[in-house]
Design a protein around this nucleic acid. Structure first.
Lengths: 222, 222
DNA sequence: CTGGGCACGGAACTGAGTGCTGTCGTGAGC
DNA sequence: GCTCACGACAGCACTCAGTTCCGTGCCCAG
């Protein structure tokens, strides 16, 4: 029933536009009652994003599950990859939806609220990991926003390629920038815990004194 | 007339809630016709954010005006400060609105679309400044998102203090983090990416000179 | 056979947003 | 001074999203 409604809705959205399609049109094509539509989708916009609710639950579960043994920024990057994979599962559907949301302002606004919930989930996780650190909340919010922006950048360029590009590679590249900017690093070699090693990430062009300065501040905190 | 509608709307919103107030209630209190409301505000949500349209225009004008002689990240930070100043002009109004948007999901969604337009303005400016650079678009989007997140973080903590804290100082502090992450370090000569990053892993007890030695050798190999 | 959940259908309602029409100033042109 | 055009406003009627309420068929335990 859900799938039938989504299929009917997209057929009509694509052939005559989102705003030109009424809920009555959709339920007539799907052969169900009008009331049933709103039983499955709280609003007309929701039928365009039928899988985000589940994906959001997956992300929060992923963040809540694992032990906090690895680097926080890498972990939220991995969480963001879940969203990309959800899109990549149905490339044709995702591309159609992308073209739809790009043209309809109401759908863009709705998508923003969905993205905002992902960003909040990432930020809440990082706030927990950064608890007690100075400016931990600020840092958490900024990193979450950067991760989401990088992810969306890669996602959109993949969608614009009609799903032909390598989505995973694009998002890896984009998230690599964020990790580079905010101090993520590859996992330490097995056997060495995070307690006795210091990981420093520096840009190749940065002046050496700046790297040393950063190094000393980290050692001081240790 | 605009002001009368805004005043009437906020009186009713505060005393009986946003969703419990109909447009008919507002125009009845303001003593105008229902049709006039929609002449001044395209939707019921717009009456809650009566000054953002102007502020957005100010921001784009600010970004379009100046010569591109100073550092791009600092410039978008200055643009973000315009928004904060707009809020700080009417602290009481801003705090009331904050409490309203926090409670009403529909207003939160609308606010997101407003914030998104600010972010797009910043990102478009940065895209222009980074044109030709490798990953310029990605970098522009990420920095714009980080600036907006930092700004909103400071803004919200100021709003939660009922406008008592120093808003300018808070936003300076927050944007300072972003500039430190993206703007302070001079850009490397030939673009940057994960391949331009050096990762050093050192034992916490190791003498500093040894770490620096290792660092330099890595840089040399690069 | 019966009674209670349960999913669905459908009618009626509320309220946002739009289109159209009429009305009242107001100012320019003769 | 009269008129005509124009713009701001009021009011009405309409569409459509979303909700409430109720009726109906269905399955399953007693």
């Amino acid at each position: 029933m859900r799938d039938a409604l989504v299929a009917a809705a997209f057929r009509l959205f694509l052939e005559r536009g989102y705003e030109q399609t009424t809920v009555d049109d959709i339920v007539a094509l799907a052969g169900v009652g009008r009331r049933s539509f709103f039983r499955y989708f709280p609003s007309k916009e929701d039928v365009v994003f039928p899988d985000h609710e589940r994906c959001l639950a997956d992300m929060t579960a992923f963040l809540a599950s694992g032990a906090d043994d690895d680097e926080p920024v890498r972990r939220v990057c991995d969480a963001a990859r879940l969203v990309l994979r959800m899109y990549a599962e149905n490339p044709a559907f995702s591309v159609q939806r992308y073209r739809l949301t790009k043209r309809v302002p109401g759908l863009r606004a709705y998508e923003l609220s969905v993205v905002w919930r992902y960003e909040r989930a990432l930020a809440e996780y990082l706030r927990g990991r950064f608890a007690g650190r100075r400016d931990g909340i600020l840092r958490a919010d900024v990193i979450a926003a950067a991760v989401v922006a990088a992810h969306n950048n890669a996602l959109r360029s993949w969608l614009r390629s009609d799903g032909r590009d390598d989505a995973e590679a694009a998002v890896d590249h984009a998230l690599g920038h964020v990790q580079a900017a905010f101090g993520a690093a590859p996992a330490p070699p097995a056997g060495e815990g995070p307690e006795d090693v210091v990981v420093v990430v520096a840009r190749r062009g940065a002046p050496l004194w700046r790297v040393v300065q950063e190094l000393e501040s980290v050692r001081g905190r240790g």
